[in-house]
Amino acid sequence: MISNARQTLANFFCKAQCATAMLLLALLASQASTLQAAPKDNSPPTYKKQPANNQTRDKPAHWRDALRMEERETALQAIARKNPGFEQRTRRNDAFKNDRPALLLLEKRPLKKNARGARLVDAYYYDYQRNETIHCIVDAATGEIHLQRTVTDLQLPLTQDEIQHSFDVFLQSPHRRKLANAYEVATGQSLIDISNVKFKAYVFHASANSARLNRGAKKCGRTRCAQLLLYTRENIALNITPVIDLSRSKVLQANTEPGFASEEIPAAEAVSDPSHVHEHDH
């Protein structure tokens, strides 16, 4: 009897396991057919739409952000209302003039570390007639001018217009022949095409190598001057470094290089004691 009961129980469990296995197989087959029947989605992925520029433009500027175009315009217009004679844009190269104060630099005024406050603009102009730098501090939001002052002996980096004008002044001067000589010495070829000469320029101060400067060039720093660096297409430096007075559009000294500077200094200046010379601007 016991043996028959065990056999019956074993048969029951065997049938139950078979039924469970068949049910699982049926479920798997049903899922597989569903996946095969589902259409393939070939549509491109979707991305979150970014706000348009005019939407972000209306948001208030963070105190650390760079100046926005509308803030620049607000500052320039405020300065123009107070100073109608100021040039509000850097001029094109072919229209450079020094008859009115020109804009040299416009930038966001830095704040002290961890400070908060109104966004301010620093604007720097140069008055070529008075040889003064004019500094304005303007509220970028309201256009209120917090400060306007003149500073002497402050020379900011040259603008692109000033660099181009310096080269143009040199080419239009009688000293151009010295450029041709320097080019031939450096390359062994005659200077036929002026486009073969490249140039850079930087603000020149008389404190650099004053012993090699003539009387006019020694005023640089008090007046706005540029020194040209001339080189060939192959980046061969030319041994000529002219000094240009931007206030008068004049070549002050054609060359300040050792061995050539002495030719630029008149004998009367070379023997005189600078400490006893009183110079007056006319």
Results as ranks from 00 to 15, higher is better:
Ile2Val: 10
Asn4Glu: 07
Ala5Met: 13
Arg6Phe: 03
Arg6Cys: 03
Gln7Pro: 00
Ala10Gly: 09
Ala10Gln: 13
Ala10Val: 12
Lys15Gln: 12
Lys15Met: 13
Cys18Thr: 15
Ala19Ser: 15
Met22Gly: 07
Leu24Met: 11
Leu28Glu: 03
Ala29Trp: 02
Ser33Trp: 08
Leu35Glu: 09
Gln36Leu: 06
Ala38Asp: 12
Asp41Ala: 09
Pro45Asn: 09
Tyr47Asp: 08
Gln50Asp: 12
Pro51Gly: 01
Ala52Thr: 14
Ala52Gln: 11
Asn53Ile: 05
Asn53Arg: 04
Asn53Trp: 03
Gln55Pro: 02
Thr56Lys: 08
Thr56Tyr: 04
Thr56Ala: 04
Arg57Ala: 15
Arg57Tyr: 10
Arg57Leu: 13
Lys59Phe: 03
Ala61Lys: 12
Ala66Pro: 14
Leu67Asn: 13
Leu67Phe: 12
Arg68Val: 00
Arg68Trp: 04
Met69Pro: 04
Thr74Gln: 09
Ala75Thr: 07
Leu76Trp: 02
Gln77Lys: 12
Ile79Leu: 15
Ala80Trp: 06
Asn83Pro: 07
Pro84Tyr: 07
Gly85Val: 09
Phe86Gln: 00
Glu87Pro: 00
Glu87His: 01
Gln88Met: 14
Thr90Gln: 15
Arg91Leu: 07
Asp94Thr: 09
Asp99Thr: 05
Pro101Leu: 04
Lys108Val: 02
Lys108Asp: 03
Arg109Ser: 12
Lys112Ile: 06
Lys113Ala: 11
Arg116Gln: 15
Val121Pro: 01
Val121Phe: 03
Tyr125Thr: 06
Gln129Val: 13
Gln129Glu: 12
Glu132Tyr: 02
Glu132Arg: 06
Thr133Phe: 01
Ile134Arg: 14
His135Val: 10
His135Met: 10
Cys136Gly: 02
Asp139Ala: 09
Asp139Met: 06
Thr142His: 05
Glu144Trp: 07
Ile145Leu: 10
Gln148Thr: 14
Thr150Ile: 02
Val151Ala: 07
Thr152Asn: 07
Asp153Phe: 00
Leu154Gly: 01
Leu154Asp: 09
Gln155Ala: 14
Gln155Lys: 12
Pro157Asp: 11
Leu158His: 11
Leu158Trp: 10
Thr159Val: 10
Glu162Tyr: 01
Ile163Arg: 06
Ser166Ala: 15
Phe167Asp: 07
Asp168Asn: 10
Asp168Val: 06
Val169Ser: 09
Phe170Gly: 00
Leu171Ala: 02
Pro174Glu: 15
Arg177Cys: 01
Lys178Ser: 08
Leu179Cys: 05
Ala180Arg: 14
Val185Gly: 00
Thr187Arg: 00
Thr187His: 02
Gly188Asn: 02
Ile194Gln: 08
Ile194Pro: 03
Lys200Ile: 05
Ala201Met: 05
Tyr202Trp: 01
Phe204Cys: 05
Asn209Ser: 15
Asn209Leu: 12
Asn214Thr: 08
Asn214Cys: 05
Lys218Ala: 07
Lys219Leu: 14
Arg224Gln: 08
Cys225Ala: 12
Ala226Leu: 11
Gln227Asn: 06
Ile236Ser: 08
Leu238Trp: 00
Ile240Leu: 15
Ile240Tyr: 13
Ile244Asp: 03
Arg248Gly: 14
Arg248Met: 13
Val251Lys: 01
Leu252Thr: 02
Leu252Tyr: 06
Gln253Arg: 04
Glu257Ala: 15
Pro258Ile: 06
Gly259Leu: 09
Glu263Arg: 05
Ile265Lys: 01
Ile265Thr: 05
Ile265Arg: 01
Ala268Gly: 02
Glu269Cys: 01
Ala270Glu: 11
His282Gln: 15
